[in-house]
Amino acid sequence: MPERQRIAKEDETVVARVQLFVTCLADMVRPQAAIAAVRAMERRGVNVEFPSNQTCCGQFSYNAGYQHEAAILARHFLEVFETGETGHDETEIVSLSGSCAAMVIHSYPQLLFDDAMEQGEPLSVAEDWKRRAQAVGTRIREWGTWMGKTFGSAQEKGHHLPVAYHLGCHMRRLLPPSGELTNMLKAQGILAREPDDADQCCGFGGTYSFTEPAISTALADDKLKNIDKLVHDQGAVCLTSADLGCLLHLAGRQRRQGSPFPACHISELVDLADQNRLTPEHIESLGDEGRK
């Protein structure tokens, strides 16, 4: 038996078991977000499994129209999350990106069906892939929404630190309402404020961000203008989101313009709040951790 499961059992505090889908972006350029998410979950007695053969959901290829390439990654994703320690039961998969979760839920079944048919597989094989994708799709959740749902928002902290919160388009429009996420943040003393024009895309769009940088950036600038307004009018101390793609795009734009502003994944804020370190200073130093 893996050690951590044994430890958790001794504590008798295991409240849930999840598989973590870390996403390629968090893994490679913002591991602190994933580490914070793991810490926040384990602190609450969650038994976190990390199927370490995972790579990427394939959304980059899918959205650019490369169906077969996306299907290769999608099949790999299914195999990884079906064959983890708990992959065959109902264990939930928590994703550190809302957009990737939406990809698995909404695009995988048809994508895998179509690709199998196009590769000349028999119909039964194509249908099997579709069924497997649908099964995994019912298990995947966005991390923050899952946290909110699982742990509620009962223990309100007295103080509230305002932050600019960017709700990505796919989370907003393709996943179930994420009110539990913001309530959970509020319970942690984090006041998530959405900027004006919140429902307008930040311009990231996956592959779009590097194939059409001019328009992508014009949209980022619109978004940043409204975020600036939050900073000035409501004293927002950082920018946060459940989607790292949007965050890297917006923060990368600010940095290029010489006005870096703290930006972090929601998990990092929750982790800080857990440790009673939710201050502008600690938030500012988040970006420096994990890359010494």
Partner: peptide, 26 residues
Amino acid sequence: ETRDMPAVAAETFHEWWPKHHHTGAS
């Protein structure tokens, strides 16, 4: 052309995980 990006981390999450859970069981 218009944005910066953090470099690939000195330690990715994949690399961190086995140290955190030193059995590497998963």
